[in-house]
């Protein structure tokens, strides 16, 4: 029992570092580069992706023995698109959120992280593992989004505005606006990716010595 819990915990944790979807697997980049201009957007996008990823992982893992190999991709897409539509409809009842996020929600369908996890993991894993994997990968995705957006919004606009309240204000006049524009997305992403590579490369020799 303890052994099983440990692996479940491992399934959850691996999404943050070793198989981080954005920085290591490098999937699902397009929408993440586009929305990481504002912290607020990333919070909602992250929550939506966690929900869709976890639900689709569980459902696909549940029916993995029922899905014939030849039509597995259409089935994955039906499952994922259904959950995205559910999120879309639910968010429509909260206009304040939907106004900001509406255009990004349909993009979750084409977010390759979800299809990649369905195809590469959930289709051959136990339900409990698939659930933890979805949660872990989703949270790994969200944490990278948050780091990127805090960096870009803070230094690109000089302040962070959350739900119409200014949380942090640096009071600097000449901000590097490039950070919230497209090149800024790539620069931030490359820096983070390099940082993680460095961290892992540094950890490895230590582990070998230990």
């Amino acid at each position: 029992m303890e052994e099983k819990e440990k692996t479940l915990w491992g399934e959850l944790r691996k999404g943050f570092i070793t198989t981080n979807p954005l920085l290591v697997l490098m999937v699902g980049l397009c929408s993440s580069l586009a929305i990481s201009t504002r912290v607020e957007n990333c919070i909602f996008m992250g929550l939506a992706v966690i929900f869709v990823l976890t639900c689709s992982n569980v459902i696909i893992s549940l029916i993995r023995n029922f899905i014939p190999d030849q039509v597995r991709i259409p089935i994955y897409i039906v499952v994922i698109a259904s959950f995205v539509t559910i999120v879309d409809l639910t968010l429509k009842t909260i206009p304040a959120v939907y106004e900001r996020l509406g255009v990004w929600i349909p993009l979750i369908v084409v977010n390759c992280i979800i299809l990649a996890r369905a195809e590469g993991y959930a289709s051959s894993a136990k339900v409990s593992h698939a659930f933890m994997d979805g949660l872990g990968i989703g949270m790994g995705y969200t944490s990278v989004l948050l780091i990127m957006s805090v960096f870009r919004e803070l230094f690109g606009t000089g302040k962070i505005v959350l739900f119409n309240t200014t949380v942090i204000n640096l009071h600097i006049k000449a901000v590097p606006v490039i950070l919230i524009m497209f090149p800024g997305a790539f620069i931030t992403y490359a820096l983070l990716s390099a940082l993680l590579q460095w961290y892992q490369a540094r950890k490895k020799p230590e582990a070998e010595e230990g």
Partner: peptide, 21 residues
């Protein structure tokens, strides 16, 4: 057999969406 299974998945998904809507 393939068509039937694909249909079943779609039918369940459609029912779920209809309910949510």
């Amino acid at each position: 057999n393939l068509g039937l299974r694909l249909f079943l998945v779609c039918a369940v998904a459609a029912a779920g969406l209809g309910l949510t809507y």
